[in-house]
Design a protein around this nucleic acid. Structure first.
Lengths: 122, 122
DNA sequence: AGCAGCACTGACAAAGTTGTCAGTTGGAGC
DNA sequence: GCTCCAACTGACAACTTTGTCAGTGCTGCT
């Protein structure tokens, strides 16, 4: 007992969720689809995020192998984050999640739906 | 401030995640793919889950419109849960999550990978 | 030297999620 | 009547995640 969700994961679904779930991870991934970004660029492009959470999520995803930290040498300190090739394989996954979410919102804007298509069936 | 993740969700990805994320939701959904199950059957098929969490998750997913609670009449009290048609549209989503998770495990069993294809580049 | 910017860290608190445990309703069986 | 089971609920504690806030090196600018 007391083990975290990430340590049990008998199911690959949970593995994937442990990689992409987090308050801001989806958003960060979304930003990085267009190309590498510097830490501060990311921070500014997501106004609500705190520096701490950004760095935490970046580090977690880097540890999972889907993000890459590239530090330029010599200069003051420029760090760029980008998707690794493996991270890019997540794109279709995010895409599926995104389109299902859109459909779900259309059909069920009030988070409470009655299956009414096809007439009452009770 | 203080709003929960579910209330912000500018991104449909977060919408989907809010539906399927939860310690046991993936497992429950997995079980229900084979057909309707009674509350206790579910509970017994997932030994680690507590009754409380099972019911909580069932209720949440029922509220989201992806599960259906069917109570048989007259009998002692038989409740069956099953996927709604809308819930069934989640199947391909779960499938994608599952296969990505499997690939991720293959490639990265120790949650720490070095992109070594193409030789050292530093 | 003083100030600002970038990347990053750590202590602590607030919020959210899950687990523990006890209790309720209602019918079945003895 | 008593106990058992199925479905369900509520109070509370433990754990996790996120947020707040202050601070560290290092560089560049003036």
């Amino acid at each position: 007992m007391g083990v975290s969700k990430k340590e049990i994961s008998p199911c690959p679904i949970d593995v994937t969720l442990s990689v992409i779930d987090g308050r801001w991870k989806g958003t960060i991934l979304w930003r990085l689809l267009d190309g590498p970004m510097r830490t501060n660029e990311l921070r500014k492009s997501i106004p609500e995020i705190t520096e701490r959470m950004l760095l935490r999520h970046l580090r977690e995803m880097t540890g999972a192998g889907i993000l890459e930290r590239h530090q330029e040498q010599g200069l003051p300190l420029r760090v760029r984050y980008s998707l690794t090739p493996h991270g890019r394989t997540l794109v279709p996954v995010l895409d599926v999640l995104c389109s299902w979410g859109r459909e779900h919102l259309k059909r069920d804007p009030s988070t409470e739906a009655e299956e009414s298509s096809g007439g009452p069936s009770h």
